[in-house]
Amino acid sequence: MAYDYKELKAHGFMQQKQPGCFSMRLKSVGGKFTAAQLQTVQEVAEKFGEGYVHLTSRQGIEIPFIKEKDIEDVKKTLAAGGLATGFCGAQVRTITACQGCAICRSGLIDTSRLAESFAERYAGRSLPHKFKVGFTGCHNNCLKTEENDIGVKGAVKPVWQHDSCKFCGACVKICPQGALAMDRENKKITWNHRKCVYCGKCIKSCSFGAWEKKIGFAVSFGGLYGNRIAVGKKFTPIIYGEDKLYKTLDAALDYFEQHGKKGERFRNLLDRIGWDEFRQVIKAAAE
């Protein structure tokens, strides 16, 4: 059977330096695989590869030394074990995610569920160039969201409750950005939203319930980490509600699809035409 190597690459088969061999990338969402799926990975690696796998930087699994003659049999074995090949090329790539609030004590958002939802909507969508998305549960930023074309981070807005406050000062002391100030004489705590990074440490530090929390998403755009390194930019402090989050993500992907040149990364597009118009598009979607 004659293969189109460009098509093979788009579906996770990357040619190795060894003739006739491919390093096969598996579909992954947030790095989550079941124990049964891992047994299938072992079976494929031992039967069709060289008995080992490679764990990628984006929480995926690659099985090297898959022979061209075995590709169809490999696909059948993967499908029987609940697996599929992943994505390469100019499309939305593997969605990364930490374990989020379902597992982690620091997590503010359900990153695994959000990553799965995003993958269902967007994974494999063709774009001018590869496009990377990452979800992280809190300001600890385990997934380094600002390195992605789009990064989504759990964020929380602190809302002070005067009647519950004992003015112990714990929240003021723990704030890493100095965004809180206490006026004991007038019984008041002031919050500087320009300094706040929405990490929620002030809320966790309070033993008296003097802070209410409003949880949302801090979204960054245009991150790069490769031949060129650039930190993603944020245009809105927090986006509240999953409906607005998806409207925002839809707007960003549509903008890239409409304005990007073939082979141009998202950040390079924004730098080329300027950020002002895109900023307005995102603000309109978020509002």
Rank of each mutant, 00 (worst) to 15 (best):
C175S: 15
A210P: 11
N186A: 15
A35G: 05
D4T: 09
A84P: 01
C196A: 05
G222D: 03
L38V: 12
G151E: 03
I109R: 04
A285G: 00
V197C: 06
M24T: 12
Q59R: 07
I273K: 04
Q37I: 08
D70S: 05
I66K: 11
F217T: 06
A45E: 07
D70Q: 05
I150S: 10
G107R: 11
I63E: 10
E46W: 09
T190A: 11
D271Q: 14
C206H: 01
V152M: 00
E185V: 02
V231H: 07
D4K: 03
H193P: 04
K69Q: 13
G216Q: 04
Q91A: 14
I103P: 00
A119S: 13
K188I: 04
N141M: 03
H139A: 15
P176V: 05
H193S: 14
F13G: 01
G31R: 01
I174E: 04
A218W: 01
T111V: 07
Y52W: 06
D276G: 01
F48T: 00
Q161L: 14
E72Q: 15
E116Y: 11
S220F: 05
Q280L: 00
K188E: 14
Q42N: 13
H54A: 07
F33T: 14
A285I: 00
V41D: 10
Q18K: 12
G49H: 05
S112T: 10
I71G: 10
G260K: 03
G107P: 09
D254E: 13
G51N: 09
S57G: 01
A79S: 10
E120G: 08
F221Q: 10
G100Y: 06
E146G: 06
T136W: 13
F118Y: 14
